[in-house]
């Protein structure tokens, strides 16, 4: 039962993921990506009982980040003739780098025996519940958790600084032109 559910959800996820790349219209791509995130959330919720992670995935990725993606795409001119023609060299480079990334991921997964490593954690059925997760995050993994949050803070401040710097350099540019 659980295995067939896994294969069903996995199939749906991969189908949507392929459609992201395969669809011509960028808006459709983004919407398929949203559906991919939803199926990944379904995987968390049904397979691991990790309702918290599943919901947060929906809120953060499907709800916030993809809305911003869609937001930017909607303001662009999406006519096909306005699209710049990509040279063959560009396509070949993309294929090679994509293939190398795939190789890297496969190699990393191959060396790590994930199935055995996770058995001890999976034995705990409540692993996905918010109480267990909070306990683990704030005791066992407190340092990595705090470092990650500092990283986010740096990224946030960095984007603000970059935004400010742009306007400053523009005014300097104008003064130089005068």
């Amino acid at each position: 039962m659980l295995t067939s559910a896994f294969y069903l959800i996995a199939f749906i996820t991969i189908f949507f993921a392929i459609m992201v790349v395969a669809s011509r219209n960028p808006i459709h791509s983004v919407l398929y990506l949203v559906l991919t995130f939803f199926s990944i959330s379904a995987m968390y919720i049904f397979m691991l009982d990790a309702t918290f992670v599943g919901m947060v995935n929906v809120i953060v990725y499907a709800g916030a980040i993809m809305v911003l993606f869609l937001y930017v795409l909607m303001m662009m001119n999406l006519n096909t003739d306005a699209e710049p023609k990509k040279s063959n060299l560009f396509k070949i480079t993309a294929v090679i780098s994509g293939g190398m990334l795939l190789l890297l991921i496969v190699a990393a997964l191959h060396d790590n025996n994930l199935v055995n490593a996770n058995k001890s954690t999976l034995a705990n059925e409540k692993i996905g519940s918010i109480k267990v997760l909070g306990n683990v995050l704030y005791t066992q993994y407190q340092l990595p958790f705090e470092i990650a949050s500092v990283l986010f803070l740096i990224a946030m401040i960095g984007s603000v600084v970059l935004g400010k710097k742009n306007t400053a350099s523009q005014t300097i540019g104008n003064e130089v032109l005068k």
């Binding site: 919407l31 949203v34 919901m55 929906v58 709800g63 809305v67 519940s129 918010i130």
Partner: peptide, 24 residues
Amino acid sequence: LDIGILYVFAVLSVGVYGIMIGGW
């Protein structure tokens, strides 16, 4: 659900798509 509030937020964030998709 033991995370009822997050469910409310998740549904809320899905609701944005209705308006965005329709408008576009």
